[in-house]
Design a protein around this nucleic acid. Sequence first.
RNA 1: GGAGAAUUCGCCUAGUUGGUCGAGGGCGCACGAUUGGAAAUCGUGUAACCUGUAACAGGGUUCCAGAGUUCGAAUCUCUGAUUCUCCGCCA
Length: 426
Amino acid sequence: MLDIKFLRENPDVVKQNIKNKFQDSKLPLVDEVIKLDSEYRAYKGEADSLRGGRNKLSKEIGMLMAQGKREEAEAVKKQVTDNARRLAELEQLEVEYQEKIKKIMMVIPNIIDPSVPIGKDDSENVEIQKYGEPVVPDFDIPYHAEIMENLSGLDLESARKVAGNGFYYLMGDIARLHSAIISYARDFMIDRGFTYCIPPFMIRSEVVTGVMSFAEMDAMMYKIEGEDLYLIGTSEHSMIGKYIDTIVPEESLPHTLTSYSPCFRKEKGAHGIEERGVYRIHQFEKQEMIVVCKPEESPVWFDKLWQNTVDLFRTLDIPVRTLECCSGDLADLKVKSIDVEAWSPRQKKYFEVGSCSNLGDAQARRLRIRVNGKDGKYFAHTLNNTVVAPPRMLIAFLENNMNADGSINIPVALQPYMGGKTKITK
RNA sequence: GGAGAAUUCGCCUAGUUGGUCGAGGGCGCACGAUUGGAAAUCGUGUAACCUGUAACAGGGUUCCAGAGUUCGAAUCUCUGAUUCUCCGCCA
């Protein structure tokens, strides 16, 4: 969400940004919202002066009453009532215009970073760098569900009976591996100076609408029946929500947090939910990192954040690459975004395991997250990135650490979390 | 889940027969005086947002949130949130 003042003063910048994102159908909204805004301010001006007059007269009534001049007071009362109708009308208009303006401002995309490559959709995303050698072994790598089942580590059939498609039972060493990865990722981030946090797994609707658009909400969020609560789709929701309506002291910045949570997603309309396995599922667990910082520091934090994910995967012997989101594929709230993708020796391509985003001040403006600085108050910048999200991450882990006999090597870094095991075997 | 009390300007607090309360006091903070420098002391100032202005000025909104009564609400009514105390239940 942009600052309307910025839009008012730089309509051409906003329009060029819309073109860069290939959302030309939104171009007329810019002039429309400028017109609505000037009309709104005119109504507000008139209403303010009527309210001012009313306040003045009301004070007079108070004074007259105090002096016992009852009749004069009644006369002034009448004057006030005369303006009441026009004021009520204007107040109605103020609300209507505010709503109209907000609705449009919510869909006008954030100004993207100049470094973002211009492109229509995900096919034009740009590979930045590869880390590690993408190896294809000389034996066949089975589908990930099969690898897990061969190790007695996955029971989809029972999960379907109990909860339906998109759920899973992880069993034995695979379940332990899952927990080990989460714990390892937690300690990895703590070692890099992040504060560990376990947030609420349910949040109020007020927070939900603050962190995402209505369309996203409908497609992702599970609502608790009879309560004003939603299951979180990612801990970013509760972690950024933590700062709603707060004024953060400048000297306390940056806030660097790493949070654990289960994540619940409807995946409405997404293809592949019926796909066998644990790639796209209704429930998974995630170690996340978020940063709240000064505006001028967000680009530096952005690079530090995705680097953390790359480093973590490299310590687990998984080749990865970074892929920059092009302008057309970038969500409207984001200034810049990079996906971390892991190598799949079975598919012989990289697939997404994490996403790092700089939201600029867009989220902060929506949630009223401000910084109290020496030269006044301003909106903070917010960033978020996946540390690791199993079980999807397990797919990459298993495929890259598998031996010809079907056993799985445990990288040294993870062995302490697996009770010293070096290998998972049947 | 039931009963009661509470929620005021960064913090603590005054303010409930509705009108000189957008709000008094203390702490904190800023500036000034005093001092060789400091502490202490004294003085002055000290909310946010919107609108407006070249900049001031001016106007509006906000006393947990929303709705209502009224010419007028921190003060009255309703709903909700949160906190505390007691009871019940429970990992």
